[in-house]
Design a protein around this nucleic acid. Structure first.
Lengths: 244, 244
DNA sequence: AAGTGGTCTAGACCACTTG
DNA sequence: AAGTGGTCTAGACCACTTC
């Protein structure tokens, strides 16, 4: 008898589910059978099955909706966070259906934390605060918080924001951003964010922060983005730093 | 009696461990007590304790070394993948101790896959293939695979590569790279990679691919990097695209 | 109302690391 | 040799979604 390399039960289950998906037995965004159906098929306990599913989740092959079940991941969206082009544009360009939902839009004083982050002279400086949720096809993939200097785009709140902010700024205010500073890392979502993204509490996410600069090289916007980690592939091209 | 919001047992355990860490009861890279000690302290089963630890792992507060136990995460290294400056430089600059270990360095034909990826005329084009492991303080955090056009830096293999590749190219070959194309996403490591990074099999990682261009804007190098996801914060600054 | 996923218990065995 | 973490079983209850 030939030697068969040892592999754990959950690994074999993972492999079977992965090959089901690869062979197209399940389509993108399609729901997998219930856990109790799957443990019958694989002859294991739920603990073991869930270990296999969590592995596939980390690989970006399946995703979970809180208490709703497991689904097959669609392919990733390619996203260049250094480009000014908006979500609506690049998702459409990749043959998918984007949707933007404005959850909150208000004027408020910046406050200490933001004033420091944005280099404002006063914590009373008025800003617009937006919270938006963005979808690709059937799935919410991104929670976005925008903070804009109110003096830079007065009257922003009178405009429909369930769309591309880039375009609104360009068309209503003739505003274009020049450069930005980015920071990103892997983290988790809090309870509120989990609910909005239909994630299980404590699920992991890609956290992205951006400081945007305006025409005179002043800070005009501060963004935070929380992405479902399986939803995107981050791409960018650089040019060499210019000599001074 | 006031209403106390419901929270799960594993969440309370998470909170206690998190506050232990925040208060400095455990230092960076210090080992936590064994799981069996902790379940005694918390009065739960190992399943529940491990759920709490996996949550903290996703947050980047603790990390795991396969079969060795759980450790407290040190702070993240800030890394700009668009900069040419090397690992050794920016890790030192942040007050940490970097180490580079060259695991493999050989000359070989590019092969079909790489030839296409790098836009080479022939699959026989010779390249140097390097595999290096990089450490921060006591911990391996990065697995790096470099493929360099042999004609661009002949004799590279005669040089000590347990150091900064950037500096070797600059000092021995007077080579500087101009721009690059980046792609990154969240994924998992395979078995070999897990072992080299002392990760549990199937652990998640940040996967980064880079195509580097030389002086005449030709592709001269293709890299892949696999990072422990808790080890870094990716930062970058952009300039606006130039008008044509 | 039925079924689902999320949480949890109380054990067990094994391969591997540590002393 | 002892102890550790990784894997796994066979259940259970509950909150929530779906029908």
């Amino acid at each position: 008898m030939s030697f068969i390399p040892y592999s754990h039960h959950y690994q074999r289950i993972r492999d079977q589910l992965a090959s089901d998906i690869a062979q197209g037995a399940s389509q993108a965004d399609e729901k997998l059978p219930s856990e109790r159906e799957m443990i019958e098929r694989f002859g294991c306990t739920r603990v073991t099955l869930r270990q296999a599913l969590q592995q596939l989740e980390a690989e970006g092959l399946v995703y979970r909706e809180n208490r709703r079940g497991w689904f097959v991941c669609p392919s990733r969206i390619r996203y260049d966070p250094t480009r000014i082009s908006g979500f609506m544009e690049y998702v459409s360009a990749q043959g998918r259906t984007p949707r933007t939902e404005c959850l909150l839009a208000e004027r408020r004083p910046a406050g200490d934390w933001l004033a420091q982050r944005m280099g404002l002279a006063s914590a009373d400086e008025p800003v617009f605060f937006l919270q938006r949720r963005r979808w690709i096809d059937r799935r919410p993939v991104l929670l976005e918080y925008n903070v804009l200097l109110a003096s830079w785009c007065p009257g922003l709140l009178d405009i429909d924001l369930n769309t591309s902010l880039t375009r609104v700024l360009r068309e209503h205010f003739a505003r274009v951003q020049s450069r930005c500073k980015l920071e990103m890392h892997i983290g988790t979502v809090n309870e509120e964010q989990a609910e909005l993204l239909q994630l299980s509490p404590g699920a992991s996410s890609i956290h992205l922060e951006r400081l945007n600069f305006g025409e005179e090289n002043q800070i005009v916007e501060f963004d935070q983005e929380f992405w479902r980690p399986d939803a995107l592939s981050i791409v960018m091209e650089t040019r060499p730093p210019e000599m001074k």
